[in-house]
Design a protein around this nucleic acid. Sequence first.
DNA 1: TAGGTTTTAGACAGACCTGTCTGTACGGAG
DNA 2: CTCCGTACAGACAGGTCTGTCTAAAACCTA
Lengths: 201, 201
Amino acid sequence: MTHNPSSLSRPSERIIEAASRLFFRQGYCSTGINQIISESGVAKASFYTHFPSKEALAMAWLRQREERWIEQLTERISQHQLTEKRVSAMYTMWYDQIREEGYRGCGFINMAGEFSDEKSPVRALVRDHKERVRQVVANNVLNEYRPMMEPEVFDELVNTIYSLFDGAIIQAQNFMQDWPIDSAMKTSMKTLSHYRSGAVL
Amino acid sequence: MTHNPSSLSRPSERIIEAASRLFFRQGYCSTGINQIISESGVAKASFYTHFPSKEALAMAWLRQREERWIEQLTERISQHQLTEKRVSAMYTMWYDQIREEGYRGCGFINMAGEFSDEKSPVRALVRDHKERVRQVVANNVLNEYRPMMEPEVFDELVNTIYSLFDGAIIQAQNFMQDWPIDSAMKTSMKTLSHYRSGAVL
DNA sequence: TAGGTTTTAGACAGACCTGTCTGTACGGAG
DNA sequence: CTCCGTACAGACAGGTCTGTCTAAAACCTA
């Protein structure tokens, strides 16, 4: 072993690790293959034996991020029984992500923004991810509310809570401040109690 | 006059017109100078006499878009007296933009996503634009509510309505559907009546 | 130790990028 | 008509990009 800057043994892991950092921080277009192989300490030929193209690497990274992200979200949610606490746990995830990765917003949305063709597999993956988050809101967060209201009203509530949650991170990214997340959480709580009290529509 | 595909006389106008279309549809990185000059029917030398760089063109476009956008928003709002109608008018603007330009989301946010350096003038312009939208919400849309509540409560309401409005377009872009806008508008209305009834916090 | 697989470094091709430069054509003002 | 500012076409430079290729070195297993 001649050179191992990131202390990860397998090249493919080092590549994804570097791609994760660079794609997230700099964006897809602004990050070159040469920078990725340089920072992961991998030869260019090795890169192309593991990944057929730059876009394939992006897909691999997004798939890994999706898996870990959903896993972490559901894990955080499952630690609480009260619906309000579960909603709160979702927002804590945004806070923690900001503390960890800075105000870089949602890696999926940022990525989708660089692929203007809506038929691109990257766009499809991002859509699937967001749909899955919405499903988590419906099935893992608000499930307790489901029998309390008509299905269409429940769907409306799910869409609202999901939109508030997901819109918050983009605002925080733009302003580089926390207040959009605070604001979204407060509105989520109010919306929740509003629906619970039966004063819907 | 040898060639005038866009029927606009002055070259700088044709350039900005082409840039507007291409930057908005394809993104900044994916749009080359050569495509812009080709589609605007302008010589490369002419381009560089009017704009010192590609980024300067992007700035010029964003400034124009900002001006027209705020102008249109305030104009639409001013046509109504009731606060609820004014909020509704904001969302009508999103609907109309989607009908006109497709599900391409917010041109400012998309642009900001391609400039990872938060000190970039493009990022500053986008932040200023969003702050200005928030000011419009405070001064032109919700102004009637201001004397009804404490200043910090009013600010909270402004942030909520603004975040709902601005988050909706990103969701609509991702899903290529209208429902996030419907959802945000409904939540805005409920939030409004909630605050109005005095049942805040 | 032997053999086959993986990784290494880096040159290279071909395309594309921004921005500069040369030279020509046109059109209005004096 | 002459002059001058503006726009034209397009070659060109210098750099960057992705992806391919060569050939040697390292590694693992038998």
